[in-house]
């Protein structure tokens, strides 16, 4: 059975997609740590045919699928087809998944051959959905309307989804800040949301190019809904930036005022210390006082000694004194 996948390579200028990477690094696809991992590695040839080598967990024998390139459009569309046997009882879940649709992970991986992430980090790239069909006579022109509608819906999901997420998380963060939740953490949430929203708003250029190129094929209501979502998201981004700046300024101001207070206190303590150091010699007589008391004591001793001498006469001197008195 033949499966066809139409993908759009985001661009801002008209022209067929060009190969930028001939082979892509190995990636591991697994969400649940208990599930076996699917390891895929892709390469593209000069005719845009893609070969995907994959293995279910490291130990298993690698398998291969070939995506045959069937169409390139001037507005960035590519169509690939995959031929699989009608019934294959021992086929793995990676291939059986491709019978339903091309997963966003695989689409995102294939996009890496043609698209450079210039406006955002690779992991911040938003995910468009591939258009999958089992029509044996599939052609781009035949399914054109559905393919274009699919990309338009994908963009509605991107912008509309981000609006929902930001509305929820912004309300939660503001509630938490008002009711005494952790301040730093909630400010970090606002930061992360602001960066994520900015990354998504970078996709607006691609979306606008797409809308311009297919202006007549996209229904007016869809176009208006998409533009409304973009406008709402831009407003929300303004709000995120406002609250982010508001709280950061508040904390910076409080920190600044606190720093000034500590600075003034330090200055006062310093001045007081200098003043005390200057005044201390004026009141400090301890050495002089000791000298004076020594002197006083010394004079007291001398005085006492003199008085004792007055009454005390040694024996020889007394005899002499007596004889003189006799004479």
């Amino acid at each position: 059975m033949r499966y066809s996948y139409a993908i759009w390579i985001p661009a801002t200028e008209k022209g067929q997609p060009q190969v930028l990477e001939k082979s892509l690094p190995k990636i591991v696809l697994r969400d649940n740590p208990e599930d076996p991992a699917v390891i895929i590695k892709g390469a593209i040839d000069e005719n845009f045919h893609i070969t995907i080598d994959y293995s279910i967990s490291e130990e298993c024998v690698p398998h291969q699928i070939k995506l045959k390139h069937t169409y390139s459009g001037s507005t960035g569309f590519l169509v690939y087809s995959l031929q699989l046997p009608d019934i294959c009882p021992d086929e793995d879940f990676f291939v059986s998944g491709l019978r339903v649709e091309m997963s966003t992970a695989l689409y995102h991986y294939i996009k890496g051959f043609f698209h450079k992430h210039v406006c955002h980090a690779k992991e911040a790239d938003s995910k468009l959905k591939a258009y999958s069909s089992t029509d044996p006579n599939f052609s781009f022109q035949k399914h054109r309307q559905h393919i274009i509608q699919n990309v338009c819906l994908s963009y509605q999901d991107i912008f509309g989804g981000q609006v929902r997420i930001v509305q929820n998380e912004l309300a939660d963060a503001l509630d938490a800040l008002s009711t005494g939740g952790n301040k730093q953490r909630n400010l970090n949430i606002l930061d992360r949301l602001s960066v994520a929203t900015n990354n998504i708003l970078n996709e607006v250029a691609f979306c606008e190019f797409f809308l311009r190129q297919h202006a007549t094929e996209i229904q007016k209501a869809d176009r208006q809904a998409l533009r409304q979502d973009i406008f709402t998201l831009q407003q929300l981004q303004q709000q995120l930036l406002f609250w982010n700046n508001h709280f950061h300024n508040k904390f910076s101001y409080a920190d600044g005022v606190n720093g000034v207070k500590w600075g003034v206190a330090g200055f006062c303590i310093g001045c007081l210390s200098i003043l005390l150091s200057c005044l201390l010699p004026l009141f400090d007589h301890s050495e002089e006082k000791i000298m004076n008391s020594i002197k006083e004591n010394f004079f007291e001793i001398q005085k006492t000694r003199d008085e004792i001498r007055k009454y005390y006469v040694p024996s020889n001197e007394m005899v002499l004194k007596d004889s003189l008195t006799d004479h």
């Binding site: 969400d31 599930d35 992970a105 991107i158």
Partner: peptide, 24 residues
């Protein structure tokens, strides 16, 4: 719709699993 929005915004990612497509 909600799941597609979560996938499109990059809040969840997908991978093929033995029981069907998984989200992480």
């Amino acid at each position: 719709r909600t799941v597609r929005q979560l996938e499109a915004t990059g809040f969840i990612v997908n991978a093929p699993g033995p029981k069907g497509v998984t989200w992480g």
